[in-house]
């Protein structure tokens, strides 16, 4: 049993050695354990999903009429998980108020960021397992580790008018290379940072989300009504345009989590009666890299601002 060490001061008074604050690596280790504990339910659910999906693929491979040729492709799943994970990481913390976390001897802003880091490390582990799972499935099912996709590109600009003349289509080989394996990590990171900033910085994030939807609806209606009255044509549809750029723009959220595969391709019927996927352009990985960098940067800034809401009071 240890006792608090005492030192004898020069004036003869007993001076107590101050108990030290914990080392940051110990704090990270503790938060890794606590966060891992908090994430065990989502992990079990994810594992159950993975087992079912694997069974489905294996049965397909065995029967040779099910799902085959699994390969890496841009899936928004890691992006969604990254956005939702902060809710699980912070679910048991009373971070707005005098919660237990803040009673611990760690600088509050630093502690918040360490907890976010702990959640991110778990998530990266999860995404790595997800990538490994995809890799194994690709190998088992005879798919390609570095896929090359054949995309039918519509040479005429704009949306295809059905039925489409096959003469207007051009087949292009799209080979994203190794970068395709970095996509889930980067998208999960960017959405996780943004999600963490929301959860950490806003007391009731769901209320803010609902409030944002209401504000958008009101602004949209007001712009629609005010545009003809004020003679401002640009006002008509301005709120929709802003939101559209944010979500579907060149560097929007959709570009981050799907490489714009949602907005670039569409199902269309050919004049031959065949239904095919038609792309208006090839997904651009350089644009995705810029989108990922922008969203990650914005997420980091937002996270810093959110963590600063909980910083120690300075005189």
């Amino acid at each position: 049993m240890t006792t608090t060490q005492e030192l004898q001061g020069a004036d003869g008074r007993t001076q107590r050695e101050r108990p030290p604050v914990p080392r940051l690596r110990d704090v990270l280790r503790a938060q890794l354990r606590a966060t891992g504990f908090a994430l065990r339910v989502p992990v079990v659910l994810a594992a159950a999903f993975a087992v079912l999906a694997t069974l489905n693929v294996v049965l397909g491979v065995i029967s040779r009429d099910g799902v085959t040729n699994i390969h890496a492709e841009p899936s928004p799943l890691p992006g969604f998980i990254g956005a939702l994970l902060p809710l699980a990481v912070w679910a048991r913390e009373e971070h707005f108020g005098a919660g237990f976390l803040w009673t611990l001897p760690v600088d509050r802003r630093r502690h918040a960021l360490i907890k976010v880091l702990a959640g991110w490390l778990w998530m990266m582990g999860g995404v790595a397992l997800y990538a490994l799972w995809l890799l194994v499935l690709a190998l088992v099912s005879g798919g390609e580790v570095l896929p090359v996709e054949s995309l039918m590109i519509l040479s005429a600009p704009g949306r295809p008018s059905s039925p489409v003349d096959p003469a207007l289509l051009q087949t292009v080989q799209w080979a994203p290379g190794l970068l395709i394996w970095a996509v889930p990590f980067a998208m999960a990171t960017a959405t996780y940072l943004c999600g963490s900033a929301l959860v950490l910085g806003i007391h009731r994030p769901l209320r803010w989300v609902v409030g944002a939807v209401i504000v958008f609806a009101v602004a949209s209606t007001a712009a629609h009504l005010a545009s003809p009255l004020l003679g401002l044509g640009w006002l008509e549809g301005a709120p929709e345009s802003v939101v559209s750029r944010l979500f579907e723009g060149r560097y929007g959220l959709e570009a981050l989590i799907t490489l714009r595969t949602w907005s670039l391709d569409t199902r269309a019927t050919l004049t031959t009666g065949e239904v095919v996927q038609i792309w208006s352009a090839v997904p651009d990985l350089h644009e995705w890299v810029i989108a990922a960098a922008l969203w990650t940067g914005a997420g980091l800034l937002a996270l810093w601002a959110a963590a600063s809401r909980h910083r120690e009071r300075r005189a």
């Binding site: 101050r18 108990p19 030290p20 604050v21 606590a34 504990f37 908090a38 048991r92 913390e93 009373e94 005098a98 919660g99 237990f100 976390l101 009673t103 611990l104 001897p105 760690v106 600088d107 509050r108 120690e312 009071r313 300075r314 005189a315």
Partner: peptide, 24 residues
């Protein structure tokens, strides 16, 4: 205010509320 973490390292705190953290 300036040394919150160092202060808390010196303190054993029993809060007024009786709801412990990390209920699971």
């Amino acid at each position: 205010g300036r040394a919150g973490s160092e202060v808390r390292a010196q303190v054993g705190y029993v809060p007024d509320r009786q709801d412990a953290p990390y209920r699971s």
